[in-house]
Nucleic acid binder design. Structure first.
Lengths: 241, 241
DNA sequence: CGCAACGTTGAAATTCCTCAATTCACGTGG
DNA sequence: CCACGTGAATTGAGGAATTTCAACGTTGCG
């Protein structure tokens, strides 16, 4: 541990950051925790529509989202774009860029956001001394792979309403994990963005919302969602063709 | 470096392994290289249809494919399955399992295969001493994320023939990288497996192959593919709706 | 208050899927 | 070595899901 402390050539700036929360369950010692926090830069803020980073930008840092919602999207040469994810407070964004040191997608704020920068070089260096952090980083990246694969399952083998049901249930889970209501929440993204994420056109998304409301599964008021029958949604999801 | 060698409590078994090839471009010293190789277990072999691992299996190792083709697939409760990738010689398989120490998908041999086991705990430990290996591991995982995102783009916003064109061009690239012909190769997977991967039914895949042949882009003889006009395929890919 | 962006709904068009009939490729056994 | 059988691939026709196009409603901001 002395060895580790001796390595503290890191700038000490931010006191509270998602990183702390993220590593809470790891059961680190106070000294280790302090070290971790020394890594975080000050929080920075973003307004709706601001880019956290752009495809092609040089990669230097991961970002821990402290507040707000982002979307990530990849662009095809011909102008088509695909939303690859919606990231909320408590999640880490930017893992895709490690592979080439260049960001592979755009990250755009969907509302007012606050993030903590995590310089990746320092994170790598630190994780050589803290096996528990190393492990955590690996799990983060692997979890992203698993998440992407479940979206491939969704895009490859589900029909429109199943996709939307899966989307709503996933949001619900994540809100729950953050201490918000599992059944009532505000969407931060447009129908078009949901459609892009789910591989559907915005009209199809809108119709699916309306249909779910008709059959009493949810109540929709534009961006405000109230899940009335979570089990019903789950059922709709498991219903094979 | 003494420190590193002192840590050699790893079993020494396999002499030549994909790991070596994978790390070739890293410019390691001979000593570092030897250390890396000490990590690899003996090669094991698989016949068509064999499972390299199953969803739910305990995770212990990554695998470097030395020879042959695998597919990975995720299963949905209701029985639907989605092929999430085809892995060929020189590629690493199993990264998804790190997140939970349980394999999240099945990996199945599509032909006779040979793999090298890479015990992950040892890989993690070693990568703490070899920053260059650490970096490489991170890039591997990140590359997988980027790859998955490009499949999301494919599944979410391309039509049937564009998907197949993208698939063929991707295979072509990977064969090229391995020193095989970019224009003539054997498919190791069935139409149904291709369809699952591309989010299409097998009949649609078959029709797309036939159409590509009609318009002179490729020559198909069931599993044998000859790309006659790569630029034409690329063009078909860039053609937005 | 009015404009502009976003969302909803309907009808027609298109793509892809389903079902079904053949054909083809390949391995096994006569 | 060939015939046969089986599973895979191809092809066609009809139908279903989703997209496209278009009109109209709603929301919220300047």
């Amino acid at each position: 541990m002395q060895q580790i402390v001796g390595r503290s050539h890191l700038k000490v700036t931010c006191s509270v950051c998602s990183l702390r929360e993220l590593c809470m369950p790891l059961g680190l010692s106070d000294a280790e925790m302090e070290l971790l926090e020394s890594l975080s830069s000050p929080k920075s803020t973003f307004k709706r529509g601001d880019f956290l980073y752009r495809s092609g930008d040089r990669f230097t840092s991961l970002y821990a989202i402290r507040m707000g919602f982002f979307k990530t999207q990849v662009l095809h040469e011909d102008g088509r774009e695909q939303v690859t994810g919606f990231q909320m407070a408590g999640e880490i964004i930017g893992l895709d860029a490690i592979s080439s040191d260049i960001h592979a997608c755009d990250a755009i704020a969907l509302e007012d956001c606050e993030v903590c920068e995590l310089p990746f070089a320092q994170l790598e260096s630190l994780s050589r001394d803290l096996p528990i952090l190393q492990r955590h980083l690996h799990k983060l990246m692997s979890r992203e792979i698993v998440r992407d694969q479940s979206i491939m399952l969704l895009l490859g083998s589900m029909r429109a309403e199943e996709r939307l049901a899966a989307f709503l249930l996933n949001l619900s889970e994540r809100f729950t994990a953050r201490g918000y209501s599992p059944t009532q929440f505000q969407l931060r993204m447009s129908r078009e963005e949901i459609g892009s994420y789910l591989g559907l056109k915005l009209e199809t998304v809108s119709r699916a919302f309306s249909h779910f409301q008709e059959i009493g599964l949810i109540k929709v008021q534009v961006k405000s969602i109230h899940i009335l029958n979570p089990a019903g949604l789950q059922e709709c999801l498991n219903k094979s063709r």
